[in-house]
Design a binder for these strands. Structure first.
Length: 1133
RNA sequence: GCCCAUGUGGCGGAAUUGGUAGACGCAGCAGACUCAAAAUCUGCCAUUCGCAAGGGUGUGAAGGUUCGAUUCCUUUCGUGGGCACCA
């Protein structure tokens, strides 16, 4: 019987699907284990062989844990919002939703072929409204929260508002409160003023920030779309532009993100990367006077009386981690974009400064930091050293970034390499404050030196000087201690289409959140994906989506007899205040009802109290069901009031509201009946569906004026920051994840993904988790207990050297040349990708054959005018005058029918034509072979190029395993004989190795161990069920299909996926002696077999008698004999 | 530039973390079976000197610690990843 992997794998995949063996329940008596993969972005290129590396690793570990008796959650989904789909839409006009759907279908079928144990019923897609509803919802939690630095956690912003209303604010409450105000002042502020202060505290907030702006394309570009200051597409100039952006206040969590690293099991390098990203440093902020001086003659700290200078009103504040070097400051460097520069530049330097700023504007941050070239410009101004009055020239240079610290540094060239180079380049004299530690050739960042040339610090050790300087600065009031972070708040807006829309509307400059009931705010359909009129996202073009009916005045809403109301904004504000007051002045009966209906207590419907609708303020309203509950006081019997009530009721009825009334008596004496009636009323009314909602925000919010929707969308990391929670409870419509589910599954026990997400995704999801924890929505504040980094599988691109032949200004054809390095042809040689599909191996070289070139040409017209050529031919036939090569003489004389290609290891990507599709590999060798081969390639953590060459070996191994059970001619060969000790030894050695290796994710060595085991079993001709079935269980995580097939062939009932993992018996492997290597001076010369219980003296005696050792000793006595039990023996001569 | 990782035969990699460098596999070579091919099996396979026995060299490079270093330390070079709007 043959190993027909195609049939076997299909059969079991179908069987498993039908039996739902991968369905995971949130209820189990088994211990839980949560294995998570970083979910893929479903690109148009499909899954490539690099993706499954981590997925196979996690699948192996999940299956292993299952065999070990755990309830394992191992889900999969798609990070389906993103730029590529939008880019594709821009080029082809296909809607991203369409292409994304198609791509996901492809990915899923590809994943399924590999035989992963996912519970697809838990799949999540970030672009699914049912999912991003909750992304938006969590964003609103962030928006509605602030960071309380005293409690050191996030709290609802309503609490802050309350505190402002009663206590006002002192500036020192938070570094984010810009000025102090009393409660009375706060209450007197306009809505706009209040919101501005609150915006400054929200965890999700909006402010102006710089973006890469490309005027020609009319759009904002990503950093990697900008190359050397121009756009990647089209090469148009790009410059920095300020735009309103959303941010997440990740800086508030800097310390907790840092501390949290102590509690998780990530690799040290990963933690290190995150620490560096956060970049916490302790130092000082120092403020300097700025002067504009014609001369810098300084006399004992006092400028010469004869030299005129003016003191600017500007002050220069720098951040430094080395206050001890204050006397070594030879110049200041300010970030060119700071406003300060405009204030302090002198007239003589203005032209030079402006020119330099224009140059800097054109450069990206990455360029600026990566640049080796030293650039800068003197501003003409000087800062005054507060300790000795020395005037220090102020420069601007791109190596100082505005966003870090204060955007200005004090440069100490003797102690800082970059400052030193800058000083050398611009011939700025260098002060040496570290004596012999400084050699004049390079800076020395020592902290050990005794200070020199440092005024009152002379002779003080640098490590002590910092503290002295800090004290002096604080005494003089010109500086303070400062903890600084390199990390900036996370930009959360994208001027793009294919992302989550913000659940925010803007009304007169105030951001107003949508209500939870209004979510999801669906991404509207667009026909064009170009940027908005002034660089906003494409959504800005859909005016009937963006422009909302301005929040109508009560009159506009048709209020008949408002009496105390009219249509002006101020009056409307009064209504709101009225409502607010009503809430405070609630009657006892109203409070009773409120306690019963709040928090969705009744029929899961949200009630509000004293909520203005147009000009009316009903006692309670459920907006979703359009139900109003009134608790009547006695005054409702008055004639005027009845008239008003009737008018109100009929207008509200027109708007779809039903009103039910209860008296105070009823509330006091028959509460149960009242509640029952409310419930009854709710049940008779339909929920207002999202579609039926008017385009206008629910009435009663906003401050009037123009009302528009936010037009930017959320970035890629929004959806991926919390997806691990959704898998736990993916279908929940009431909440993002039920607390019971998140408590049961708790943290992700094992998270597998690439290092490319080291800082971005991991920090953001850690942040979201901490916020959700602070708000009491989940029970832990670190999402991932353990992180395993998977390496990248790179592609091997094949490059061909190509000469373009141009005739009469028209590209005539391309000549592919075998080895251009030998060529001195004057024609331009261009490298070009050849799709890997058509690349063959010959003599360890990549080649493109004539035959494959023809196939290539059939497939794509792109290659139609390609021809093989030889270097010699080019020389012979090229007509340089006309840049023309005679066709005839070329192809006929070609020695070989192929050209060699230049291999290049790089990322797998469609544009590089080096993507290898796992489907092809699975079709040819089967999923089990593919899974084991990917693992066999090397350690999961390591990056390596994909190479199919070795796959035969793994496939041969599986066939060999098969032949332990079945013979091609004889059929079944396994038997029920009792296993011998030698056979059990092979088995238990394997159990030990596989278990150890799987536990430590050393899957490549585990595959080797399987091979060794099968080879050994063949050597002893062991076909015994007793041994073989144990091996099969070990193999399940690695090659589930063949294991299940052979398991059933052995006559077992039920699936092997839930078999009992074999236990290792150490007693079977005990040895009594060992073949010791004997070294002379560390070099192995011979081996001797010794009993394991020998002592040092016994060994020395035996060694002395050994022939080989005697030969090397040449009669002398050994100086020393080193004997390490169970390891080795070394004789020192 | 800064941060992180990494470098071992023709190739992917192994080495119980300081103790026989090259397990396992690919490729290659020689042979068996076969009319032949495929499949399978056996042997060789870092490099160099040598008929052999045996010896020299060898884990990117240069130094150091140690009885002993792929492993620890210092310096240096190459490659890959990240650097905040690719995901």
């Amino acid at each position: 019987m043959e190993y027909k992997f195609n049939e076997i794998e299909k059969k079991w995949q179908d069987h498993w699907k039908e039996k739902k063996v991968y369905k995971v329940s949130n209820e189990s008596t088994k211990p839980k284990y949560y294995v998570l993969d970083m979910f893929p972005y479903p690109s148009g290129a499909g899954l490539h062989v690099g993706h499954p590396l981590g997925y196979i690793a996690s699948d192996i570990y999940s299956r292993y844990k299952r065999l070990k008796g755990f309830n394992v959650l191992h889900p999969m989904g798609f990070d389906s919002f993103g730029l590529p789909a939008e880019q594709y839409a821009l080029e082809t006009g296909q809607h991203p939703a369409e292409t994304t759907k198609k791509n996901i279908a492809t990915f899923k079928s590809q994943l399924d072929k590999i035989g992963f144990c996912y519970d697809w019923e838990r799949e999540v897609q970030t672009s699914d409204p049912n999912y991003y509803k909750w992304t938006q919802w969590i964003f609103l939690q962030l928006f509605n929260s602030y960071y309380d630095t005293t409690a050191n956690k996030a709290k609802p912003i309503a609490e802050l508002v309350k505190s402002f209303e009663t206590n006002g604010a002192a500036t020192h409450d938070s570094p984010l409160t810009t000025h102090a105000f009393t409660a009375a002042e706060w209450n007197g502020y306009s809505k706009q003023q209040q919101e501005e202060i609150l915006m400054n505290r929200r965890l999700a907030f909006s402010k102006y920030g710089e973006v890469n702006w490309c005027e020609a394309l009319g759009t904002v570009l990503a950093n990697d779309e900008v190359v050397n200051g121009v756009s990647e597409r089209g090469g148009h100039p790009v410059e920095k532009k300020k735009m309103r952006q959303w941010y997440l206040r990740i800086t508030a969590y800097a310390d907790r993100l840092l501390d949290g690293l102590e509690t998780v099991d990530f690799s040290d390098s990963m933690k290190e990367m995150q620490r560096n990203w956060i970049g916490k440093s302790q130092g000082a902020e120092i403020t300097f006077q700025v002067v504009n001086s014609q001369s810098s003659i300084v006399n004992n700290g006092v400028p010469d009386s004869g030299v005129p200078f003016t003191i600017h009103h500007s002050l220069l504040t720098v951040y430094t981690t080395r206050p001890d070097t204050i006397f070594g400051v030879d110049f200041m460097v300010v970030a060119p974009e700071l406003d300060l520069v405009q204030q302090i530049k002198t007239p003589e330097q203005t032209a030079a400064v402006d020119e330099y700023i224009a140059y800097v504007k054109s450069r990206s941050d990455v360029d600026r930091m990566a640049e080796k070239k030293i650039t800068g410009c003197f501003t003409g101004a000087y800062a005054v050293n507060p300790f000795d009055g020395k005037q220090i020239p102020i420069w601007i240079s791109e190596y100082v970034l505005a966003g870090y610290g204060t955007g200005a540094i004090m440069a100490v060239p003797c102690g800082d390499e970059r400052d030193f180079k800058f000083a050398k380049h611009f011939n700025i004299p260098i002060t040496n404050i570290i004596g012999s530690y400084f050699n004049g050739e390079e800076a020395n960042a020592t902290k050990e030196a005794l200070l020199e040339n440092s005024g009152f610090l002379n002779g003080v050790k640098m490590t002590d000087a910092a503290e002295i300087v800090l004290q002096q600065l604080e005494e003089k009031g010109i500086g303070k201690r400062k903890v600084n972070y390199r990390m900036r708040d996370a930009g959360f807006s994208r001027q793009r289409y294919w992302g989550e829309p913000f659940p925010i509307i803007w009304s007169d400059g105030v951001a107003i959140p949508l209500d939870a009931e209004e979510l999801p705010l669906q991404l509207p359909h667009v026909d064009k994906y170009g940027p908005g009129p002034s660089g906003e996202g494409p959504l800005a073009n859909i005016t009937d989506w963006v422009d909302l009916t301005p929040n109508p005045s009560p009159k506009e809403r048709g209020a008949k007899d408002p009496g105390y109301m009219n249509s002006t904004k101020d009056e409307w504000r009064k209504t709101l205040q009225f409502a607010k007051q009503n809430r405070k002045d609630a009657t006892v009966e109203e409070d009773i009802i409120w306690q019963e209906v709040r928090n969705r207590k009744i029929a899961d419907c949200k009630f509000r109290r004293q909520h203005p609708i147009a000009g009316y303020i009903p006692d309670f309203v459920c907006l979703e069901k359009r139900l109003i509950v009134e608790i009547d006081g006695g005054y409702h019997n008055e004639a005027d009031q009845i008239k008003f009530d009737t008018a109100r009721e009929s207008w509200l009825a027109e708007q779809g509201f039903t009103m039910i009334r209860f008296t105070n008596d009823e509330v006091n004496n028959a509460l149960k009946t009242v509640l029952k009636n409310i419930e009854q009323a709710l049940s008779t009314k339909e929920s207002i569906s999202e579609a039926a909602e008017s385009n206008s925000p629910l009435p009663g919010r906003g401050v009037g004026g123009e009302v528009k929707r936010e037009t930017s969308t959320m970035p890629g990391y929004a959806g991926s920051s919390w997806y691990f929670l959704r898998y736990m409870d993916p279908k929940n419509t009431a909440t993002f994840c039920d607390r019971k589910a998140s408590d049961y599954w708790n943290q992700v026990d094992l998270y597998i993904g690439g290092t490319e997400h080291a800082v971005g995704h991991l920090l953001y999801s850690r942040l979201w988790t901490k916020v959700l924890f602070d708000l009491g929505l989940i029970g832990y504040d670190e999402p991932f207990k353990r992180l395993l980094n998977q390496g990248m599988i790179q592609g091997v691109s094949a490059l061909v050297k190509r000469i373009m032949v141009v005739k009469n200004d028209e590209v005539n054809r391309f000549l592919l040349i075998p080895d251009a390095t030998k060529s001195q042809t004057p024609l331009e040689i261009i490298q070009f990708y050849v799709p890997v599909k058509y690349v063959e191996y010959k003599d360890n070289q990549l080649i493109l054959t004539r035959e494959n070139l023809l196939k290539l040409q059939e497939e794509s017209p792109l290659y139609l005018n390609w021809e093989l050529a030889t270097v010699n031919n080019i020389f012979e036939s090229v007509d340089l005058q006309n840049n023309f090569i005679e066709r005839q003489s070329l192809t006929d004389n070609l020695k070989d029918d192929y050209v060699t290609l230049q291999p290049l290891v790089e990322k797998m990507s469609k544009s590089k034509y080096n993507v290898v599709n796992p489907d092809d590999v699975v079709d040819k060798y089967g999923a089990d072979t593919f899974r084991m081969y990917e693992m066999f390639l090397g350690p999961v953590e390591a990056s390596k190029p994909w190479d199919t060459k070795g796959i035969e070996g793994v496939h041969r191994f599986l066939r060999k395993l098969w032949r332990l059970f079945n013979d091609e001619l004889k059929g079944k060969v396994w038997n029920n004989d009792k296993a011998t000790d030698a056979e059990l030894k092979i088995l238990h050695r394997t159990i030990k190795k596989i278990e150890e290796d799987t536990e430590k994710f050393s899957f490549n060595t585990a595959v080797s161990a399987f091979m060794i085991c099968v080879n050994d079993l063949f050597d002893v001709k062991c076909h015994k069920k007793e041994v073989l079935e144990k091996i099969l269980i070990l193999l399940v995580p690695y090659a589930p299909h063949i294991a299940e097939e052979l398991w059933s062939q052995l006559g077992n009932e039920g699936t092997i996926l839930d078999a009992q993992y074999p236990t290792f018996n150490a007693a079977l492997l005990v040895e009594s002696s060992k073949e010791y290597p004997v070294s002379i001076n560390g070099k192995v010369r011979t081996n001797i077999n010794l009993s394991l219980d020998l002592q040092q003296a016994d060994v020395e005696k035996i060694i002395a008698e050994n022939e080989v050792v005697q030969k090397w000793l040449e009669g002398k006595a050994p100086k020393k004999v080193i004997y390490v039990k169970n390891k080795m023996i070394n004789v020192v001569i």
